[in-house]
Design a protein around this nucleic acid. Structure first.
Lengths: 211, 211
DNA sequence: CCGTGTGAACCCCTTCACAGCT
DNA sequence: AGCTGTGAAGGGGTTCACACGG
C-alpha cells in the first residue's frame, strides 16, 4: 500500500488513512510500526518514502532473492509465468519437473530441468526460496532435495505437511482449504440466520464456533 | 488428513496421532473437536469415518458449491484447470474475462464468457463462490458484479483490498506476500544469528519483532 | 489542534494437567 | 491402562485512551 501511495505522489500518510486503506485497526498499525522505530511525525503522519525504505530494510526486502519452482503442472506453469514475483523482488530463476516431456522446454525463457539437478543448480544460482507445486506424494522428496541444496525457505502448495529440519521455514498454501473456509462461513451464516456482526471490511476474519 | 486416514483403512485415530500428522498441538486439537460435540471414545480415540462426517457437516462441506472464476490470465488459467477444487466439492462452473481473444474459448470443457454476463450466468448456475484472478485495477469492478449476482463468498488473488457489503465474505490470497513473509524470516534469522527456537515442524509460524 | 507513541486493560486463544470414562 | 474432555493457568496479541510532541 505504501508503494502504491508513493506512486500516486503522496508525501505523508496518517495511521488512520493507511489503516482505512488496508483494512486494519489504526492503533495496531501504529503499535506495529513503533516496533521498528519512531519514524512518524506527530501531528502530521508518516513520510511515505522514508517509511517504505525502513520497512523494506526490516522486512528483508531490500535485496532480491532467487526462487526455484518445482512441479510444472497447471499451477506451476502459471506461477512460472506470473509477473507478480519478479516485480516484487523474487525472480523465478530455476524450474524443475520429473516429466521427460517437460524437461528441456522453456517457460518465460527459463529452462525446465530434471529434479535430480536441484542441488547443483540451486547452489549455482544462489536460490534462497523454493516453491513446491508438485502432486502431494512427490512433495516430500522434492523438499528433501531443496533442503539438501541449502534452500532454507519453502512455499508449499502440495496438500501435505512437510517434514523439515529446524532451520528450514515452511509456509503452506492450500487453495482448496481457502474455499473450504469460505464454505464454512456460508454454513455458519445459514445456521445462525445472519448475525449482524461484520460490516464492510472483512478480510480473513476469524468467526468462532463456540456457543 | 482424516480423508487420507480413511482411505488407508484406519478405523480410529487418537488426538496424539492426528496432531503429529498435521503438525498441531494435541490439546488444541481435542479442545477444538470438543466444540462440535463429544465424538471421541475415551481410551480409544476418534472413529475416523464418524468424525469425518461430523466435520463435513459442521464445516458445510456436505454439499457441493459452484465456483465462478474471473480473470483468465496465467493464474486464472491454471486454477481453471486445477483438479483439486472439483475433487474437494468446489466445481469450477463458470469462467469470465474481458479479453475478446479469450471469450469464446473453452478450458477443461468450460466456456469463457464476457464479464458482463457475470450476473446472469452466476444466478443461472447457482454460483456461491467467486474467485478473482484479474489484475489489481480490474478487481473491484469484477467484485461488484459478483456481489450483484448474489455471490456471498469471494476468494481474491488480486493485490487490492476489496470493498464489499457486510454480508459478503472476502478472503485474500497474495502469493507475493507469502514470499515476502519467508524473506522476512531469512532477514530475521540473519539478524539474530540463528536462534535455537523452532525445531522440525514449523508451519506458518508467527515470529515477532519485539525485543 | 492534530496525530504519533505507548502504558494499561482487555480479551481470547493456547497449553497444561488431570478427572472421568471405556 | 489409555485417551478423551475440560477447568484453570498462562501467554500474547489487540484495542483503548491519553500524554506528548510538532
Amino acid at each position: 500500500m505504501l508503494g502504491e501511495l508513493g506512486e500516486q505522489g503522496a508525501d505523508t500518510v496518517s495511521s488512520d488513512e493507511l489503516a482505512a486503506a488496508t483494512g486494519v485497526n489504526p492503533a495496531k498499525l501504529r503499535k506495529d510500526l513503533s516496533y521498528i522505530g519512531s519514524y512518524g511525525i506527530r501531528g502530521v503522519g508518516y513520510e511515505v518514502s522514508a517509511l517504505t525504505h525502513q520497512l523494506e530494510r526490516v522486512l528483508g526486502l531490500n535485496h532480491r532473492q532467487a526462487v526455484a519452482l518445482v512441479g510444472i503442472g497447471n499451477l506451476g506453469h502459471a506461477l512460472a509465468g506470473y509477473g507478480g514475483f519478479d516485480g516484487r523482488g523474487f525472480p523465478v530463476t530455476a524450474l524443475f519437473d520429473v516429466d521427460p516431456d517437460l524437461v528441456g522446454i522453456h517457460i518465460n525463457g527459463i529452462l525446465v530441468q530434471d529434479v535430480a539437478a536441484i542441488p547443483e543448480v540451486c547452489r549455482a544460482r544462489d536460490v534462497t526460496i523454493g516453491m513446491i507445486t508438485t502432486p502431494g506424494p512427490a512433495a516430500q522428496g522434492v523438499c528433501d532435495l531443496l533442503v539438501e541444496a541449502g534452500v532454507r525457505c519453502i512455499l508449499n502448495f502440495a496438500p501435505v505437511v512437510l517434514q523439515v529440519p529446524g532451520e528450514v521455514e515452511v509456509r503452506k498454501v492450500d487453495l482448496a482449504v481457502e474455499l473450504q473456509i469460505l464454505a464454512f462461513h456460508v454454513a455458519r451464516r445459514n445456521l445462525t440466520g445472519g448475525d449482524p456482526e461484520s460490516n464492510g471490511h472483512v478480510v480473513n476474519g476469524a468467526g468462532g464456533l463456540k456457543p
